[in-house]
């Protein structure tokens, strides 16, 4: 095979170019610490990575939704606890008031306290998160129960809208409870109790029963709300775990494996230097150096 000088020059040029190109590619991966710097680096992996980015964004959003829901549920819990205390007191007052030996002024005194209880109950029902009423269904701009006079409360002003939170991809959870389902029995019982007392009669057994039923309703509501809180916690834990595992997957796809990348970089540098050295040696000698 006949070899000319230009063939040698061309070959070494191509080798040097190829080496430099490979060196540049690996340097980019090391300095950006990402092995996917453009879609053509690995189209299939890039597709998966885009999907994972979206998944992580959604998981992040679910966690935000869960936090927002949690604050509403914990406000409900506080309100229900307070309402429960009120009903406990009402229960005591009802039993006391059922005593036939009480006189009118004693009954008045109890009635006055019941009146206060009614107004406090309306206040508990009107609990808010931010400036939204949480027991009014969708009518978060209106208090569910308004005090219309001493010991008097108006009708339920909210609606029966169900507020949901998106806690997972196909998973929504009811967050609120309708104020009238929880508080109406209590208010009705207390109103009845007040009526009994101001009517000059001992408190009826049915009224005591009503108060106790109202308390049961409230307790059940609290239990349901507690279950929701647990479900939210579970969802939060689950989404946090998913976030971690998806981040790990994404990192595996996207991030450069530093040790092997740096090894590759060193190898390429060595190859490049070797090529340069060989080129210098080969291109030096020529017949014309030896002819006189």
């Amino acid at each position: 095979m006949r070899v000319t000088e230009s063939m040698i020059y061309d070959t070494t040029n191509s080798s040097l170019s190829a080496n430099l190109a490979a060196l540049q590619a690996i340097t980019e991966k090391v300095s950006s610490s990402k092995q996917l710097n453009r879609p053509s680096d690995d189209p299939a992996d890039v597709r998966s990575a885009i999907g994972l980015h979206d998944t992580l964004a959604q998981l992040n959003q679910y966690l935000r939704n869960i936090d927002s829901a949690s604050s509403k549920i914990s406000a409900q819990d506080t309100a229900l606890a307070s309402a429960g205390d009120l009903l406990q007191r009402a229960n005591e007052l009802a039993i006391e008031g059922a005593n036939g030996t009480l006189d009118a002024s004693q009954r008045q005194a109890i009635a006055a306290e019941v009146s206060q209880l009614i107004e406090s109950m309306a206040q508990d029902a009107s609990a808010r998160v931010g400036d939204e009423y949480i027991f009014s269904g969708f009518r978060v701009d209106r208090a569910p129960y308004q005090v219309t006079g001493p010991g008097q409360v108006g009708t339920y002003q909210g609606d029966h809208g169900i507020v949901v939170a998106r806690v997972g991809p196909a998973s929504t959870m009811q967050v609120n409870m309708a104020g009238d389902a929880v508080f109406q029995p209590a208010i009705d019982a207390l109103t009845q109790l007040q009526a009994d007392l101001t009517g000059g009669q001992p408190v009826q057994q049915s009224t005591i029963g009503q108060v106790q039923t109202a308390l049961t309703t409230l307790t059940q509501a609290r239990a349901a709300e507690g279950a929701r809180a647990n479900r939210l916690d579970a969802a939060k834990t689950s989404q946090e775990a998913l976030t971690t595992s998806n981040q790990a997957l994404l990192s595996q796809l996207e991030d450069t494996d530093m040790p092997s990348a740096i090894t590759e970089l060193t190898r390429r540098q060595t190859t490049y230097q070797a090529t340069l050295a060989v080129t210098a040696k080969v291109m030096q000698t020529n017949l014309l150096d030896y002819l006189r």
């Binding site: 095979m1 006949r2 070899v3 000319t4 000088e5 063939m7 061309d10 020529n286 017949l287 014309l288």
Partner: peptide, 20 residues
């Protein structure tokens, strides 16, 4: 590149050859 090398092989000037 390979074809260019072949072309050079046939038609290229070898300074050693010319010197000789």
């Amino acid at each position: 590149d390979q074809l260019t090398t072949r072309v050079q092989e046939v038609s290229g000037v070898s300074l050693d050859e010319e010197a000789t």
